[in-house]
Design a protein around this nucleic acid. Structure first.
Lengths: 231, 231
DNA sequence: TATAAGTTTTAGCGTCGTCTAATTCGACAC
DNA sequence: GTGTCGAATTAGACGACGCTAAAACTTATA
């Protein structure tokens, strides 16, 4: 397994979680910053090794082996993020890039020691679940995108996508961090969501709001109380 | 700079310290486990980038740029070794392999934070000097190979080469660790050195003794008191 | 249902780092 | 001086991974 293959598997895993299988060639290409032909040829190799199931022109899906490998990389990534924040003083918005490289280069021993020194954390600094040592897919945490909340909802920030550094810094400064409780004060027709946090208000464009996941506050029952789209 | 190039530069740096320039193609090939033609072609690339000076059929020598790069990698390596031992509970004989990989994959930020959390250490767990942030070559530390000591000398273990895991484990168990004071009780004609340590005695074959470096104890003046070989 | 638009794959190529086999070089002995 | 032997380089190949341009497939639409 090369670093590169690990990156493909991780990308497919995340895309499966976001959009469900099958995952398209172009979605992978976009996420990894490669051209579609490059992705096609790597998908052929992954299929040869039976890490994915592939139907030409249709898309791919992780096999059990591929999923296990993807979860191992994801476990590395999130443990490293947690470690950097906890023991080396990184802020939660800085850890992603460092972890993205290191995840491919640590030993099992290192993984064990880092996990132990953190007391086997369940989530990373962005609120994303850390796969366990058994490499089973983490259970659904009941969070949903902020874009599905309705005006008046009081919700707790569960996770913030770690894809974009600048966005993260912005949200950090705005006080929108995992664990904070916010109230939705407005949802504009073009998807802009405004929340009350810390006495102030913050408006988030749809693209950003979609990458913030929330959970109902303890008072609520955890089920969205609006229709979410059709259904 | 690829990982691979960094490995070549580091190897050339170490070989220059051990044997002085010029460094031969085959010495590099041996150290890195590559074939000589492979090394030749990489040396051409390093020379193109002016990281080394090269005379065909003669050997190579680091340029100033190349040396700086080598020292940066070495700084990473030794800082990581120190960090693993100090903060993650690795023993000093286990750290080498992990550091050998990670040294190529950490950011400047990570380097800074690790150095700070260790309070800018001067040596790694094997006793090897850690190049400073200025990337100047470390000054001679006055140590010399144990093979140059004479019977009756009392010396302090200064450094133990980190090349071989098993050798390291053995020396660790024998109590031959940086900082220990030992007395040389015998030097056999074929190079075997026997030292008294901890009330017991340990005999080391020449190959091992050569990779252990010692310094005079405080009582001494730091200058070898025997002729060392010709000179 | 025929065609256009968009996606995916195929074809063909370049670079990097590695190898083996063949050749050339340099140094030392005679 | 010349021959020989070990070290180094050249020649030629390969696998991994990336790209662009062209062809093929899918799907939506008219």
């Amino acid at each position: 397994m090369s670093d590169v293959m690990e990156d493909y598997l991780k990308a497919i895993y995340v895309l499966e979680s976001e959009e469900g299988p099958p995952v398209s060639t172009s979605a992978i290409a976009d996420r990894l910053g490669k051209t579609p032909p490059t992705v096609t040829s790597m998908l052929e190799k992954l299929a040869d090794r039976e890490l994915i199931h592939r139907e030409k022109y249709k898309g791919v899906e992780l096999s059990d082996d591929g999923r296990t490998l993807a979860l191992e990389v994801l476990r590395h990534h999130r443990l490293i993020e947690a470690y950097l924040a906890e023991h080396l003083g990184y802020s939660w918005s800085e850890v992603h890039d460092e972890a993205d490289t290191l995840e491919h280069h640590i030993s099992e021993e290192f993984e064990r020691r880092v996990a132990a020194s953190l007391d086997d954390p369940a989530v990373d600094p962005h609120g994303d679940p850390i796969p366990g040592i058994d490499l089973e897919p983490p259970a659904d945490d009941g969070s949903r995108p902020l874009t599905t909340a309705a005006v008046g909802d009081r919700v707790v920030i569960a996770r913030v996508s770690d894809r974009d550094d600048e966005e993260l810094e912005y949200l950090d400064r705005a006080g929108i961090v995992p664990g904070t409780t916010v109230e939705v004060v407005d949802v504009a027709p073009f998807g802009m969501v405004t929340v009350a946090v810390d006495g102030g208000e913050q408006s988030l464009p749809e693209s950003v709001a979609a990458s913030v996941r929330v959970r109902a506050t303890e008072a609520d029952n955890g089920v969205p109380d609006e229709e979410v789209s059709g259904a």
